[in-house]
């Protein structure tokens, strides 16, 4: 029983990070119908920026995160601006464009920070909480709280603000949205910016849990993408649920199938997707291709 619960606890904290990555994927997808393949690399950029400001310029962790989110958000704007001429014209080229940006970001990371990577000490130094023999890291709770807060803010933005409602409208029918005077390009730019910001949030939070290296985003990107698909690509609650599900699934397969855990994780994922191709929340409304 203790192993069971501890496994869930371990899976949930990484699951929350996967959920943040999945949110970024989903947000861009629902707005533009585009899978942003550079997303994983943006996560790495975010992780490096946050750790650089935290370690080198000695900013408080929270402030370092904010700076990282702002800078990566700007990178998201640049990506969208470059791809904008292709919007609604050549979908495949846009996809290739995001892959290209991923490679450029990867190269930039290695040029700026080198290939070796760095360990980030945890900003929360308190000892883990002991709950009936169950150990919960305080930093994990911080990660969960921030992930939850980010989700709530995102949902409020999409449902309560005019700009958010406009983005919803573009997601549903971009031609009708244009007809009623909504600037589709601006809407896309905001989606890319928020998506990149979420990636930086995920990268910055995961730094102290893992090891920041150029390879960081690759692994997180794939798991985050799988999480978005599992939850229902484009769905906000789906991304959250999918992220946590992938995290916990991963944690359990690691315990039971050892060296074959990755294989089993993705087998289970494939079976779920075969049974329910639209994912748990089955939104997947956007199809512009």
């Amino acid at each position: 029983m203790q192993v069971f619960l501890q496994t869930i606890v371990g899976g949930v904290s990484l699951g929350a990070v996967y959920a943040l990555v999945a949110l970024g994927f989903s947000l861009v997808y629902r707005t533009m119908g585009l899978v942003n393949f550079a997303h994983g690399n943006v996560v790495t950029v975010g992780a490096y920026l946050a750790s650089t400001f935290y370690l080198s310029t000695k900013l408080p962790f929270a402030l370092a995160m904010v700076v990282a989110i702002v800078v990566t958000g700007a990178i998201g704007l640049v990506i969208e601006r470059v791809l904008r001429p292709l919007e609604n014209k050549d979908f495949d080229l846009m996809l290739i464009g995001t892959i290209g940006f991923g490679i450029v970001l990867d190269a930039l990371i290695i040029m700026i920070w080198g290939a070796t990577g760095r360990a980030v000490p945890s900003p929360v130094q308190t000892a883990p909480i002991d709950l009936f023999g169950l150990r919960i890291r305080t930093y994990d709770l911080v990660v969960l709280a921030i992930a939850a807060l980010a989700t709530v803010l995102l949902v409020l933005f999409l449902s309560r603000t005019k700009r958010g409602a406009a983005m919803q409208a573009v997601a549903m029918d971009h031609e009708a949205a244009t007809a009623v005077g909504i600037h589709v390009g601006r809407s896309n730019a905001i989606a890319f910016m928020i998506g990149a910001g979420l990636a930086a949030l995920a990268g910055g939070l995961v730094g102290p849990l893992l090891y920041v290296s150029p390879a960081l985003g690759g692994a997180l990107g794939i798991k985050g993408f799988a999480a978005a698909i599992l939850g229902g690509f484009g769905s906000i609650p789906g991304a959250i649920l999918g992220g946590l599900a992938i995290g916990i699934l991963d944690s359990f397969t690691a315990g039971h199938f050892q060296g074959y855990s990755e294989l089993v994780t993705f087998l289970v994922f494939t079976v779920i997707i075969m049974v329910r191709p639209t994912g748990i929340f089955g939104e997947r409304t956007v199809n512009r291709a």
Partner: peptide, 16 residues
């Protein structure tokens, strides 16, 4: 216990 080369969470293995 055997883990994969890019595993990130070792809770299950370590708890047992």
């Amino acid at each position: 216990q055997v883990v994969t080369a890019d595993q990130k969470d070792f809770s299950a293995v370590l708890t047992s």
